[in-house]
Structure formats: C-alpha cells, structure tokens
C-alpha cells in the first residue's frame, strides 16, 4: 500500500470526507429552502424592496431556515478542512451540483430535461478536473517543503 493509499484509508480522512459531504447536503438544503421561501413570497407585492433584491422574502420562515442551513454548511466545511487538503475537499464538494439537482427534482418537483442533466454532469466533470489539478499542485508544494 502506497503512502497516499494509506492516507486515503485513514479514519481521520474518512471522517473529514464525510464532513465535506455533510456540508454539501446542508448547502443543497439551504438552496432548496431558499427556493421554497422565494416561491412562498413571489406573489407578495406589499414589500418596499424591489423584487430582484430578494429582500421581500425576509418574512418567510423558509428563508430563515435556509440561513441556518447555510451557516451549518459553512461550519462543517471549516471543521472538515482542518484535516483535509483544500484540493481534495473541492473534488468532493463538487457533488453539491448533483445534490441540488436531486433536491430540485425530489422536493420541488422541478422537471430536469435531458439537456439540463447533461449540462450539470459536464459541470461536475469540469470541476473535478480543476480540483484534481489543484490537489496535484498542493501535493507537489508539500513535497517541495519537505
């Protein structure tokens, strides 16, 4: 087993990787909750704020739940980064696009056309390539420092 394999198999790595995935679940939940808040207040014309600012949704409990979910996502992401390289975290984090698409379909009942699904898969693939090259750069920097 190589050094990198043993690093990937360590309980600390697995725990941190799970935390990254959990943070992305919170992030996707925050997006879905924001959409629920946006839909619930879309017909409200009483707000003094222009619609495009999004501030007319402040009265919606969904939006405040979205704020809590976003803070949970930020907190778990920071904890995970204590024991995980940013490049690796970024690769795992790109799964959020799949989570958001799944949430849009399952919770919000949105229709995801084949073109949109392929577009999302292209985005995830591109992000994984960028993140892997970032991870390689970090590994080379670590070796140079050692």
């Amino acid at each position: 087993m190589s050094a990198s394999d043993s690093k990937l198999a360590s309980p600390r790595f697995r725990r941190s990787a799970l935390l990254v995935l959990l943070s992305q679940v919170f992030e996707a939940a925050s997006e879905v909750l924001r959409k629920l808040g946006a839909d619930a207040t879309a017909a409200t014309q009483l707000s003094v704020f222009p619609q495009w600012t999004g501030l007319s949704t402040l009265g919606s409990p969904w939006v405040w739940a979205a704020v809590v979910a976003a803070l949970a996502a930020f907190g778990t992401w920071l904890v995970a980064l204590r024991h995980l390289d940013l490049g690796v975290a970024f690769v795992l984090g790109s799964v959020v696009h799949i989570f958001v698409a799944a949430g849009s379909w399952l919770v919000l009942g949105e229709h995801i056309s084949p073109i949109r699904a392929v577009g999302i898969l292209f985005i995830v693939a591109g992000l994984v390539v960028v993140a892997r090259s970032q991870a390689d750069l970090e590994t080379r920097t670590e070796r140079t420092e050692v």
Partner: peptide, 12 residues
C-alpha cells in the same frame, strides 16, 4: 440576490 432570481427561475 439569489433568492430574487429564484422567484423567477427554477433552482435546477
């Protein structure tokens, strides 16, 4: 601003 957009478009 994202919520403002979500009032007009799908999340996906």
């Amino acid at each position: 601003l994202t919520i403002g957009l979500l009032q007009r478009f799908d999340l996906s």
